[in-house]
């Protein structure tokens, strides 16, 4: 995992796509790791007969965790996520091959010298967006800059 610096990024850059074959284990591990015990995320009979859908599905917090992982795969560990907005349009089920994609929509440096990338994100299955998101993430300017060292007025998420 290497560090990405602000100067290496341009608006309209595409993040490398991440593909993951979703299984029942993906859904159950994500739900339990985010302490979400609701049965529609681990009990297929409940999902079908109570929720009226075809299977258990990825819960919201684990989708957020997938997006966080996707972003920091791109930036390296110095990248510091500041904001994540997302809207779920449809569910993600076992058997789905999910694809995470991203596009840089803006770059800026704020008054305290923090460099920011705005990224538009999507989680898609078979080309259809199931969850759309946008993120604001801080990138180091150079080797001496560490966004994680920013506190108080020097961190403006």
């Amino acid at each position: 995992m290497t560090d990405l610096y602000a100067g290496q990024v341009s608006v309209e850059d595409r993040l490398p796509e991440l593909r993951h074959q979703v299984t029942a284990s993906t859904v159950v591990l994500g739900a339990l790791a985010t302490r979400d015990w609701r049965p529609m995320h681990h009990d297929r009979d409940f999902a079908i007969h109570h929720n009226g859908i075809r299977d258990i599905f990825l819960n919201t917090p684990s989708q957020a965790a997938w997006f966080e992982r996707y972003l920091t795969d791109w930036t390296g560990p110095r990248g510091r996520l500041a904001r994540l907005t997302f809207a779920m349009k449809d569910s993600v089920f076992p058997g789905d091959l999910m694809t995470l994609s991203g596009r840089v929509t803006g770059l800026a440096t704020d008054p305290v010298g923090c460099a920011w990338a705005e990224v538009e994100l999507a989680l898609s299955v078979s080309g259809a967006v199931r969850t759309s998101a946008s993120a604001r993430i801080a990138l180091p300017v150079d080797r001496s800059d560490n966004p994680w060292a920013r506190r108080g007025e020097r961190w403006c998420p």
């Binding site: 995992m1 994500g30 920091t72 795969d73």
Partner: peptide, 29 residues
Amino acid sequence: AAVENGNPLFWDDEVAAGLTGGPVAPLTM
């Protein structure tokens, strides 16, 4: 492990000490 996040901040104490002053949790948790 559930989302296969290999960010060393969560696995490598030395990296976490250097960048974040010690171990941290994924922000989205």
